[in-house]
Design a protein around this nucleic acid. Structure first.
Lengths: 141, 141
DNA sequence: CCTCATTAGATGTATATGCAACTATCCAAT
DNA sequence: ATTGGATAGTTGCATATACATCTAATGAGG
């Protein structure tokens, strides 16, 4: 390990978008996970819960696009949320598809965790002052 | 699902730091993974590779702090990198600890993937124009 | 009608990640 | 020196994620 290559590695670590973004993602996700834990909810599941609620009724395919998740990830995460009684499916004329919606329990959960979400938002904004301005630059769709 | 609660969910989805940050993380990590795949390297492993190189010799505990990773995550990811012959360990006087360093193969790999990393950086900067300015606001340590 | 490419989802397999609990070691107070 | 708490790392377990492959259903050309 020459001094040169060590310095080069330092530069990469400092400049790399992925290194910083992944670290920030772990830290921020942790704040939300801490707040959601008492409800038996994870941040990934909360994302899906909110997205389904926002659509009313929605196909998995749509969630894949909205959240940039792999279809198999959606498939399996939804499966857990169904087992927890938060999500229900309804058939579609096109038998390949089906639609997802929140159950009453799912809607009640969303109501119930909203204050925890607000606290997590504050945690994040307090710890990472730049998030508030940064958020506008993160594309949503 | 009332129209009111649906609109509320839309607002949460739009405002939530975690939703946007996690989505961006998946998209950007995917760009790097695509570039690293031909080398049998993942973005997570690249992060560790660079961090070890930047330190020269480093304890897992230090990586935990530098990258905000759980200690068990570091433990197991390093284990895979050792099996791949990229990382070696040396004992420490304090027998609880050990030090990590890159092997020759590890250093060679880092050299070899650096152009791919640069391409991923360009991919990311091109797709997400705001990343370049955003990066300054993401705390490193 | 057929057939074949396409599409939506599910399943097999692997990595990444975190929490809890455990082990081994160290250190400080007595 | 002894012991009890702290520390570094590992292991058990669960979720999250992606790629490759598979299945079922659709739809477009012939």
């Amino acid at each position: 390990m020459t001094a040169h290559s060590k310095k080069q590695a330092l530069d990469i670590a400092k400049d790399c978008f992925a290194v910083r973004l992944r670290k920030l993602h772990r830290e921020v996700s942790g704040l939300y996970d801490d707040r959601f834990r008492p409800f038996g909810l994870t941040t990934a599941q909360f994302n899906l819960l909110v997205s389904i609620a926002a659509h009313g009724e929605v196909a998995p395919k749509q969630l894949v696009e909205t959240l940039s998740l792999e279809k198999s990830t959606v498939s399996r995460n939804i499966e857990k949320m169904q087992k927890n009684g938060w999500v229900k499916t309804t058939p579609h004329k096109d038998k390949r598809r089906h639609l997802l919606a929140l159950t009453d329990a799912g809607e009640a959960l969303l109501e119930k965790v909203t204050p925890a979400w607000q606290q997590a938002q504050e945690d994040a904004a307090t710890t990472y002052h730049s998030l508030k301005s940064m958020i506008k630059d993160i594309p949503l769709t």
